[in-house]
């Protein structure tokens, strides 16, 4: 029991990240709505950013900007990686949303089930014709 409390006290950031990741993954897998899936992917991605930033924190460290009064700085490298990752995540979201708009134009819906049904109907129609 004492072990568990120690783990929660020292690693609570990581545990929250894992919980957020689980929520994002669940939203991505189980929801039938395509935009809901994109929202799930976003929740997932942002939780991973928090994971990296939490790793870069050093006890008593200041922000990684040179300062006379500071002896310990936080690790700047994960910050740089995550800066790149944020922009990349926005690009993937943009492409996903563009694809969804095209799907809506073609099928008139953004629900996975209905898209599959319509595809089946199209195949049947082409077979009988």
């Amino acid at each position: 029991m004492a072990d568990i409390i120690h783990i929660i006290q020292t690693k609570y950031y990581y545990l929250v990240v894992i919980f957020l990741m689980m929520i994002g993954l669940y939203a991505t897998i189980s929801s039938r709505n395509l935009i809901k899936k994109v929202i799930g992917i976003n929740i997932f991605q942002i939780s991973v950013f928090l994971f990296y930033i939490a790793m870069s924190k050093v006890k008593h460290g200041t922000a990684p900007i040179l300062w006379d009064k500071s002896h310990v700085y936080d690790n700047p490298l994960p910050h740089v990686l995550i800066l790149t990752a944020i922009v990349v995540s926005v690009s993937t979201t943009a492409v996903a949303l563009a694809l969804i708009i095209n799907i809506h134009k073609e099928y008139g819906t953004i629900e996975e089930d209905m898209i599959l049904e319509k595809q089946k109907l199209d195949i049947d129609r082409s077979n009988t014709a």
Binding site: G61, A63, H79, I86, V90
Partner: peptide, 18 residues
Amino acid sequence: IFTRLNAVDVAFTEASVG
């Protein structure tokens, strides 16, 4: 939260872009 963790540049980007 990023600001609390001293990641100021990341916080700017997340607030504006994210």
